[in-house]
Write a protein that binds this DNA or RNA. Structure first.
Lengths: 326, 326
DNA sequence: AAATAAAATAGAACCGGTTCCAAAAAATAG
DNA sequence: CTATTTTTTGGAACCGGTTCTATTTTATTT
C-alpha cells in the first residue's frame, strides 16, 4: 500500500506538503504538478483511518431500521442511499429486528464508528433513547416518529387518517372494524387512528370496534381468522397495508368476498396493494421524498445550521376496488 | 473522550500495560484489578480508528446488493446480519441500483474501508469484476452466481428448474410460454431455464416459446400485456416470482382467469405468492440458509482456511392454486 | 543466599495521516 | 538594491491505539 510518505519521498518534498496539496492548501504550481503526477502514477489513495483518527468523524451516515424486510423501510432506504451517494457519503445500515434495546445499542455502536450523523427509524421513543442521543456527540434525526426536544421528520399521519375516515364515512358504512397497532407507536397507533376517528365525528351514527394487533403479517392474519367470522362490520380499516394484506388472505381462507362482504383499506401505498385482487384502497405515502428531505435535514444538523424541529411529508388517498358504498 | 493515556495515567502505569490488559496479554493480578476498576469507572472504550490504523482491517463485512427493494435480497440480508452480529461484526450494506459499474466501484470503496470481507450479490461477472477482486486485498464471496476461480455460494438453480419443468410437464400441458431473463445472468437466465427445458425432454411434443424480459416488475407487466392476448399457451412459466406477479396483474387487467385460462408459476418462494389469489406455484429457495452458509464460508476465507469453491443450497417445489392439469 | 529463569512493566517506535509553527523563498514596495 | 510583506515549505507534534525490546521485578532452583 502506498502512503503519503512514499509520495513525499518520490516528490522530494515533506509529507506535510503532500497533505496540503491533497487538501487544497497553499502549494506552488511547480510542486503541485510534481505531486499530482506521482499521485496519479502510484494510484495513491489516503488511508481512511489515519484521516478519521484526526478528523474525529467519517463520511458515513448511520441508519437504524427496525426491519429490512419491509416495503416502507426499503423505499426510504433506497432514496436515502441515492442522495447520500451523490454527496460522497456512505450509508451504514444497522438492523434492530424490532428490538428496542438494540436501537439504543446501535446508537452507541454507530457513534463509536464515528458516523457523521444518525437517522433513527424508531417506533417508540423512550427515556433511554433520549439519554443515548444526548450522550453521543452525533446529530440524530428521527424518521417516522416525533419526540419532544429531538429533530424529526415524518408523515402527515393525522391527515392520512382523516382522509381515509372521511372517504370511508362518505361511502355510508356504519359498522367499522379497525385493526390498529399498539398505542405506544405515536405515529401509527395514535395519530393515524385519531385522524380516522376525527373524520368519523361527522357521522354520529358510526360505530367502530378497535382491535389491537402488530406489524407482523402472521399475527394480523391469525387475529383476522378469529374475528372475521363473527363481525358485523361492513368496512374493515387496517392501520397498515401489511395488515390489510393479512386480512385479505384471511378473507380468502374463510371464503369471504371483498368488497361484497366487506370493504377493506390499508395505509402505506405498498406496491403489492395494486397487484392483488381486488386491488386495495390505501393512502400513498411519500417515502422517496421522506428519504430525501431526511438527508437534507441531517446535513443541516451536521453543519449546525438552523432547522425546523419537525417536518411532515404529505400523502394521497388512492381509491381502489376493495372499497364500495354500503 | 477518555483515551488509553487517561487510563494509564490514572492507574499509574504505562499505556502499553493498559493495552496489554485490554488485549489479554500478561498483566499481574494487582494491576489488572486496578486498571479494570478505572476502565469501568470511566466507561472507556477504545477508538476504532486508532485500532484499525494498526490492524489494517475492521470488524465490518461489506455486502454489495443490486437492490434493496427485493424480497430475496432482504431475506438474505436479514440472515447474514443476524449471524454476523453474533460474531461481533457489523454489516456494511452498499446498493448498486443494478448498475454493474457500481459493483466494481463498491468493491474498491469497501476495500478502502478495510472491511474484513466482501459478499457480492452480482448478476454477471465481467473481466472487471475479476480484476477488482484480484486487486483488493480482501476475500470476496459471490452470492447467487458462480465464476471461474472465485469462491461462491448459490442455489441449486438447475434442479429448481428441473423440478418445475417436471411438474408442469406432468400436468400434461403442451404449449408453454416462458418469461426468462437475459442470458448473461448465468444462474437465472441459463441454469434455471436449462433445468426446465431439460425436464421437458421427456415429452417430445411439448412446445415452449421463450421470451426475454427483466427483473423489473413494470417491464414484465408491459410485456405480458402485449403477449397474453395472442398466446396459445396453457401454462406460463416465469423465471421469478416477481415476473409471475406481473403476469398475474396483466391477466387481471385483461380479464383473463388463472388457472382456467392458463396455469402460472414462478421461482423464489416470495411470501406474497401465498397471499394473492390464486396463490402461485413456485420453488421456495433457502434464503436464510444461503445467508448463514455465506457467513460461514466468508469467515473461512478470512481465516485462510480450506473451503469448497462453490456451495449450493437446495430448494423445494410448492404446488398451489395457480397450476392445474390441462 | 546466590544464581537462574520467568513474568511483568516502561518506554520507544510505529501505523498514516493533519496541523501548527517557524524558517526559507519569492514577490512587492520603497 | 535593500527592506518589507506574502507565499511556500519542512519539521515536529499530534491523533489513540499496538507491539517490540530492554529492563525491572518476582518466582524458582540449587
Amino acid at each position: 500500500m502506498v502512503t503519503i510518505n512514499d509520495i513525499a519521498k518520490k516528490a522530494g518534498v515533506a509529507k506535510s506538503t503532500v497533505s496540503r496539496y491533497l487538501n487544497g492548501g497553499s502549494v506552488s504550481q511547480k510542486t503541485k504538478a510534481k505531486i499530482e503526477r506521482i499521485v496519479n502514477e502510484t494510484g495513491y489513495s489516503p488511508n481512511t483511518f489515519a484521516q478519521s483518527l484526526k478528523a474525529k468523524h467519517t463520511k458515513m451516515i448511520g441508519i437504524i431500521v427496525p426491519r429490512l424486510d419491509s416495503y416502507s423501510a426499503n423505499e426510504v432506504l433506497s432514496s436515502i442511499d441515492r442522495k447520500l451517494r451523490a454527496k460522497g457519503y456512505q450509508l451504514l445500515i444497522t438492523n434492530t429486528d424490532q428490538m428496542i434495546e438494540r436501537e439504543i445499542e446501535n446508537i452507541y455502536t454507530l457513534a463509536k464508528q464515528k458516523v457523521a450523523g444518525i437517522i433513527l427509524m424508531a417506533t417508540v421513543i423512550t427515556e433511554e433513547h433520549h439519554k443515548a442521543i444526548a450522550e453521543v456527540d452525533v446529530p440524530v434525526l428521527l424518521l417516522g416518529q416525533q419526540a419532544e426536544g429531538l429533530h424529526s421528520i415524518g408523515h402527515q399521519e393525522f391527515e392520512a387518517g382523516y382522509a381515509m375516515g372521511n372517504y370511508a364515512g362518505s361511502l355510508e358504512h356504519k359498522n367499522f372494524l379497525y385493526f390498529s397497532v399498539f398505542k405506544e407507536d405515536v405515529a401509527v397507533g395514535q395519530l393515524r387512528a385519531n385522524g380516522v376517528l376525527s373524520a368519523f365525528e361527522k357521522w354520529p351514527d358510526i360505530h367502530v370496534d378497535i382491535l389491537e394487533t402488530s406489524f407482523s403479517f402472521q399475527k394480523a392474519y391469525e387475529l383476522a381468522l378469529e374475528v372475521l367470522p363473527k363481525t358485523k362490520a361492513t368496512y374493515i380499516l387496517c392501520a397498515t397495508d401489511n395488515i390489510a394484506m393479512a386480512v385479505l388472505k384471511a378473507a380468502h381462507t374463510l371464503n369471504k368476498n371483498i368488497p361484497s362482504d366487506f370493504s377493506l383499506s390499508g395505509f402505506g401505498g405498498y406496491e403489492v396493494t395494486s397487484i392483488v385482487s381486488p386491488s386495495i384502497t390505501t393512502v400513498k405515502y411519500g417515502y422517496k421524498e421522506l428519504g430525501e428531505v431526511a438527508v437534507d435535514q441531517l446535513f443541516h444538523l451536521i453543519n449546525r445550521e438552523e432547522v425546523k424541529n419537525n417536518v411532515l411529508i404529505s400523502n394521497t388517498l388512492i381509491k381502489r376496488e376493495s372499497t364500495i358504498p354500503k
